[in-house]
């Protein structure tokens, strides 16, 4: 008779343990857990990353309208063609003061944005290349696919490449503003001499 009770009690214990496990597993990593006043986490003012039904494509981060120039940007009216590239190569020159500070900034920006592919020393041996990306030509020893040696690339040609990209290389216009591009170019010129 007591044996019966024993099995009941054991049954209840097992149920209790299972229930505890289930309840405590409610706090899993896929959920934010309990929230007090959750509407504070659903922003009324839109974040750039947020969904936004006011725009046709549903994004808050919109591109600037075509033809406008954002504050602090300098227009670069050379088309994305070989002619535009050659023309920019002749006409566009840096206006950035060639100071040590700008050079140091350029080095850092180059290491953050370009070295994954071009390598820290510009030899086209970055870590992304070791993971299967086709190696870009060396700045000091290689040849440009648009003719000429890489070490002879001028200000305007490099600026054109950063702005529009070239073949496999994408455009860096969305990641670097004009001033930053000029800083990077300062450092690329140094790498061309290596």
């Amino acid at each position: 008779m007591l044996a019966m009770n024993k099995s009941k009690i054991l049954g209840i214990t097992v149920i209790a343990i299972v229930a505890t496990v289930i309840i405590s597993s409610c706090k899993d990593k896929r959920s934010t857990g309990w929230e007090y006043a959750p509407n504070m986490y659903e922003h009324i003012a839109y974040d750039p990353d947020q969904k936004n039904d006011n725009f046709k494509d549903g994004k808050t981060a919109q591109l600037p309208p075509a033809g406008t120039t954002p504050l602090g940007f300098v227009r670069f009216d050379y088309p994305n063609t070989k002619d535009g590239y050659e023309k920019a190569g002749l006409e566009v020159k840096t206006t950035l003061p060639q100071t040590q500070a700008n050079y140091a900034d350029g080095k850092l920006l180059f290491e953050h944005f370009c070295s994954p592919c071009h390598g820290v020393t510009g030899q086209g041996d970055g870590l992304v290349v070791a993971h299967g990306y086709p190696p870009p030509p060396s700045y000091s020893k290689g040849n440009s696919s648009r003719g000429g040696a890489m070490k002879d690339l001028t200000d305007g040609k490099i600026y054109h490449t950063i702005t529009y990209g070239l073949n496999a290389m994408g455009s860096y216009a969305s990641q670097l503003e004009p001033k930053e591009r000029w800083k990077v170019i300062m450092y690329v010129h140094h790498l061309q001499t290596l």
Partner: peptide, 22 residues
């Protein structure tokens, strides 16, 4: 905001790379 990159940034590399290495 730190911002999450838009997909054109991924395409800088993934235009060429469509599979895991090897």
């Amino acid at each position: 905001n730190a911002t999450i990159p838009s997909l054109n940034v991924c395409m800088n590399c993934h235009k060429v790379i469509s599979s895991a290495f090897g």
